[in-house]
Design a protein around this nucleic acid. Structure first.
Length: 184
DNA sequence: TTGGCGATTGGCT
DNA sequence: GCCAATCGCCAAT
């Protein structure tokens, strides 16, 4: 699922109009991953991870940032993919409408920032992202030439697994130079 | 009921 | 590169 989502188009219906972007960086949190929120079983917070593949799991991280994930294994099995970076394509003025001034290069770079730009929060938790609605993932999208891989970012548990995937060379990636090398 | 903690970010150096 | 901010969840009490 983490590889499948790369290059796909993510569409958000905002007040001013559609905000369209391309998924360029993901991280996988598979079944039985100690770093995954589903690891300790189903709870009220993480229930969306156990929905049929393609549903949104949104949670608040560090009390400051919402993070958007896509369930990848359900129904009944908890796993997901974190969206870490997007490439803005259209409706950029709508994404910028919120909050303070932010450079285009930083608008959707990083999991918390992309959720903020798209105004995604807990209200979107549990939504089916593979059917058209306020937030959905299009079936189309330009093909991805080359996929890079690295370890995941910001983990203490399961930190060594190479489960981060990105569109090689894309300008909107969130990792450091080292992690954005094609194989890190 | 409570204390520790986390899939982050932005400001400052 | 370092560090504080900030709050819901959950395991332990």
């Amino acid at each position: 699922m983490a590889r499948f989502l790369l290059g796909k188009v993510l569409v958000r219906e905002l007040k001013g109009g559609l905000a369209v972007s391309r998924i360029v960086e993901t991280e996988a949190y598979p079944v039985n991953d100690p770093a995954g929120h589903a690891f300790r079983g189903l709870t009220p917070r993480n229930r969306s991870l156990f929905l049929r593949a393609g549903h949104a799991y949104v949670y608040l991280c560090y009390g400051t940032s919402y993070l958007l994930n896509v369930s990848s294994e359900g129904p009944g099995t908890g796993a997901g993919v974190l969206l870490r970076a997007l490439e803005p394509l259209a409706g950029i003025e709508h994404m910028r409408r919120t909050g303070k001034e932010i450079r285009l290069a930083d608008l959707t770079r990083g999991p918390g920032r992309l959720a903020a730009a798209l105004q995604v929060d807990r209200r979107h938790d549990g939504m089916d992202l593979f059917s058209r609605g306020p937030l959905w993932i299009g079936s189309d999208g330009a093909g991805v030439d080359s996929i890079g891989e690295s370890i995941r970012i910001g983990l203490t548990k399961g930190a060594e697994a190479r489960l981060r995937y990105f569109v090689a060379g894309n300008a909107y990636l969130s990792g450091t130079r080292r992690l954005n090398a094609k194989s890190a």
